[in-house]
């Protein structure tokens, strides 16, 4: 396959940035999208040009490090991570536009690399059960209905890639935040801090500058792990019931 790539190039956070066009040839259908970019970078390096910087690590679709807004969609045309996207999803002669995630809380650091530490700060605000190591009850002490454990697992599968934010017209982080709120609200272990968690995580999400939710469902449609927006509804319930009933003023 021969392709034309329009890639966002930006030297650093302060730089304005612009698209640059690259031609690339002899791409095999069996390559992953990132392997295609590896080939481009190897070509650029050989010519002494700065390779295109993009985030990636596990290349198995689980670490959540890869991003890229490919041809108008986060992680490209398939509902998967960019590292699991293969070139057989494209055709010879295609022009592919590659942009970084766009959101105020995700500043571009270089080319296609963005800073997603806002997600870490949302988790730090309350995405945990406050138990120290040791001194916990036996793992089978509290039975958990299988259906509840499965629902919690569905929410817990979030890989924190940020595709939900990238897909949302409002750059909202509701799906990400609600996945963690849901997981812990469903499990008995999360009950003790249930109210304070919802309040604090939502407050942090807002403080980071993410947009509000318009319930378009774009996040769910693009989430590579298929996290459902029922989690957003659950977080809304959690939040509303927390603000009217918690002891915090």
């Amino acid at each position: 396959m021969n392709l034309t790539l329009k890639i966002w190039r930006q030297k650093n956070n302060a730089d304005k940035g612009d698209f640059k066009e690259y031609k690339i040839s002899d791409i095999s259908k069996d390559m992953s999208f990132l392997e295609m970019l590896d080939v481009l970078n190897e070509n650029l390096s050989e010519k002494g040009e700065d390779p295109v910087h993009f985030d990636h690590d596990c290349r198995e679709g689980i670490c959540g490090m890869c991003s890229l807004y490919i041809d108008g969609k986060p992680h490209g045309p398939q509902q998967t991570t960019t590292c699991q996207l293969h070139m057989r999803s494209f055709s010879d002669g295609d022009v592919i536009t590659i942009e970084p995630w766009r959101a105020k809380p995700f500043p571009v650091m270089k080319d296609l690399v963005v800073d997603r530490s806002a997600f870490d700060r949302i988790i730090q605000a309350g995405g945990y059960v406050s138990v120290n190591t040791g001194g916990v009850p036996d793992a089978n002490e509290i039975p958990i209905p299988k259906s509840i454990a499965d629902l919690a697992m569905d929410a817990a599968q979030c890989i924190g890639c940020g595709a939900c934010v990238a897909a949302c017209k409002n750059a909202s982080a509701m799906l990400f935040t609600s996945a963690k709120v849901s997981q812990l609200a469903l499990l008995p272990q999360g009950q003790v801090e249930r109210k304070i968690r919802a309040e604090k995580m939502v407050a942090q999400m807002d403080a980071e500058g993410f947009g509000a939710c318009t319930n378009t469902g774009a996040c769910e449609a693009e989430c590579p792990k298929g996290i459902s927006i029922t989690n957003i509804a659950r977080m809304n319930r959690e939040y509303f019931s927390a603000v009217v009933s918690s002891d915090t003023l």
């Binding site: 945990y128 059960v129 138990v131 190591t133 040791g134 916990v136 009850p137 036996d138 793992a139 039975p143 958990i144 209905p145 299988k146 454990a149 499965d150 919690a152 697992m153 817990a156 997981q183 812990l184 499990l187 272990q189 999360g190």
Partner: peptide
Amino acid sequence: DQCVAQGVPFAREYGG
């Protein structure tokens, strides 16, 4: 024990 206390959603049987 530690992981369950943290809210790790391990697979469970129907009995919980």
